[in-house]
Amino acid sequence: MSRFTLSRAARRLTVAAAAATTAVLLTAVPAAAHVEVESANAQALAENVEITFVAESESATAGITQLRVVLPKGITPADVVYGKGPAGWKFTADAEGYVVKGPAVKVGENAEHSIVVRQLPDAKELAFKTLQTYSDGKVDRWIELGESGGDGHGHGNEAPVLKLKAAAPGAKPATSSPSPSASPSAAATPAAEETAAVSSSPQAATTEKEDEDGGLSAGAWTGIVAAVLVAGAAVVLLVRRRGSAQE
């Protein structure tokens, strides 16, 4: 075999090795940036649970300025209290979830924040769809559901998912406190007590009974007495006139 042939074979082996190395490196690259969610008490029906979100940065020129989280079914904005987040960031609830935003974090830095949920629903997992905004206006939409993402290898724009352990024995959904109108103390208002006292007195009961049975009122009796007196006076006057006529 000639020296030229050996040189060509060596070059081919070198190219093949480089290609194989590149393929290995590409398959070893970690998943693209995404949002992670975790909790130390991820259990169905658990109460006052702190949940932490980590939004990874994938920009080399802009910092993260805002995260909008859509809450899963079973958790309402009223059930959520803001925990902590990047310096200067503020929490605002909206119709579907909440927004945390503020000054941009440093370029390349992840944005981490936490919330406290009054009670987790009775479910196996919770997906928190998230929109991640950068200072240059770019938005990463981590909203896809399911195992695989847009590229078919599980590295798409999946929403962060929190897997829950089964509920503890005897755990039940928390019930809201009774409304003031339904409480005994609220029902027994002064006006209601006065009405009850009046209606329960013997005199009031007698009056009500007479009204129900068609009995005469005091005004009716006064009219009858007046009519009798008038009639009596008329009789007396008539008698006197007859006596005068006979004389």
Rank of each mutant, 00 (worst) to 15 (best):
E56W: 08
G83L: 02
G149N: 03
E109I: 03
K90G: 03
A78Q: 10
K172I: 09
L162M: 07
K106H: 04
G85F: 03
L131M: 10
A93V: 12
A159G: 07
T130E: 02
H155F: 07
S199T: 12
S39E: 09
R240Y: 03
L164W: 01
G88E: 01
K138R: 13
Y82I: 02
G150R: 11
A245M: 06
A28W: 10
A166K: 12
A28F: 07
R118Q: 09
L120F: 11
G63S: 06
T175V: 14
A19K: 11
E193N: 08
K106E: 14
V80Y: 01
T92W: 00
T206P: 00
V239E: 05
K73Y: 02
S176H: 06
G146I: 06
K163Q: 08
E144V: 01
E56H: 15
T52N: 01
S200W: 00
E158T: 10
A46Q: 09
A9L: 12
I143M: 07
T65K: 03
G154S: 09
A62V: 02
H155T: 15
K165C: 00
A196C: 01
A95Q: 14
V105F: 00
A28T: 10
T206R: 13
V161I: 11
P184R: 03
I51D: 00
A205D: 01
S244E: 12
P77F: 04
V54P: 03
P77A: 02
A123K: 14
S200N: 14
S57N: 10
A234S: 13
A218H: 07
P173F: 04
G243D: 06
S199C: 08
S7C: 05
M1L: 09
K124N: 09
W142G: 05
E147V: 14
S39K: 09
A44H: 00
G243P: 02
